[in-house]
């Protein structure tokens, strides 16, 4: 069964954008979420990422990431409420706990935990959109000239992680199929078997990479190649897209607006000793930019009628000698 986070090729702008543009665009949301603590801005950034993911057709990844992110957020809220005793608004006194000592649950600790949880959720959703929409092969291809060994490691991992997940699912199934008279399959045994299987798989993948010529120096191995003079060996036919400019522009806009907003006091939020939040016009403006950034790259450009024969219903001009 496919993971909802697995890359799915689609002819959308985010999928066809170069890896750099896609990373810059989605990374800008993550940067803003770490730059701000204001729940208004964080919620807006989250909405922007959700809009981007929906526009890119990654609904399954968004759903799974939201479920995981909100579960993690609840966990963070609970842990923060139990281990942090700062804040003036005590909601419950839970007495003395082993290791933790005296536990007082404060509204401020819950608010602080919720802020961290929201930030983590935004980051997870952004990563989910990246995972579902950005072709890992193109990322690795872009990395290869910069860091060959790292790209090799990443290639192995990017292949072995889904293979190991499939192996684990198969081993669990085989464990369920063991007869009542067979020794039960414990977690440690399963983990050991999975590790051994992964090593075998790694050997197989490494052999395939060898056969494909991974260890070769490109300059010494281009036997019989017909290279055109206009081509650069390290170049990439599909490394750029007509949408790249939009994604870079939107990423720059979010970051500039976020930094400017931060300097102008848009992040008016603190949790201790009491929760204080100031929603200014700058906060609203930064939030609006974050939300709009989620749909801006998908805006359809008006068709330019630069050539008369491209107008609707018009036939192309006939050749002079026709």
């Amino acid at each position: 069964m496919r993971s909802p986070f697995a890359y799915t090729p689609r002819p959308g702008p985010l999928q066809t954008a170069s890896p750099g543009a896609a990373v810059a665009y989605l990374g800008a949301f993550v940067v803003v979420s770490f730059l701000y603590s204001s729940p208004v801005v964080l919620a807006a950034v989250g909405a922007g990422v959700l809009l981007a993911g929906t526009s890119a057709g990654a609904r399954a990844a968004l759903g799974a990431a939201l479920r995981m992110g909100l579960t993690l957020a609840l966990l963070i809220v609970a842990v923060n409420a139990l281990v942090v005793d700062r804040g003036e608004t005590v909601l419950a006194r839970l007495g003395e706990w082993p290791l933790l000592g005296r536990v007082d649950v404060t509204g401020e600790a819950i608010a602080a935990g919720a802020t961290i949880g929201l930030r983590a959720t935004v980051a997870m959703v952004a990563f989910a959109v990246y995972s579902a929409c950005v072709d890992p092969d193109r990322v690795l291809r872009a990395l290869r000239p910069l860091a060959g060994r790292s790209a090799l490691t990443a290639t192995l991992i990017s292949r072995l992680v889904p293979v190991a997940a499939a192996d684990a699912a198969r081993l669990r199934d085989a464990g369920r199929l063991r007869g009542p008279g067979a020794a039960p399959l414990g977690r440690a045994t399963l983990a050991r078997r999975l590790l051994a299987g992964s090593l075998d798989r790694a050997v197989d993948v490494a052999a395939t990479l060898e056969l494909r010529g991974y260890g070769l120096e490109p300059s010494t191995s281009s036997l019989g190649s017909s290279r055109s003079t206009s081509d650069s060996p390290g170049g990439c036919v599909d490394c750029r897209s007509r949408y790249d400019t939009r994604f870079y522009a939107v990423a720059t806009t979010i970051l500039v607006a976020a930094v400017a907003g931060k300097l102008l006091g848009a992040d008016g939020f603190s949790t201790y000793p009491t929760v204080e939040m100031a929603v200014t016009s700058t906060t609203v403006a930064v939030s609006a930019v974050a939300i709009l950034a989620g749909i801006a790259p998908w805006r359809r450009q008006p068709q330019r009628a630069t050539r008369p024969h491209q107008a609707a219903g018009a036939a192309p001009p006939e050749a002079p000698n026709a």
Partner: peptide
């Protein structure tokens, strides 16, 4: 299953050429 190393079919087929330094157009 054991002899596929890329995510997409096009990248998988192009990999040996890419590793040999073939140009994007070829």
């Amino acid at each position: 299953e054991t002899q596929i190393v890329s995510t997409t079919v096009a990248a998988e087929i192009a990999l040996p050429l890419e590793l040999r330094g073939e140009s994007p157009t070829s």
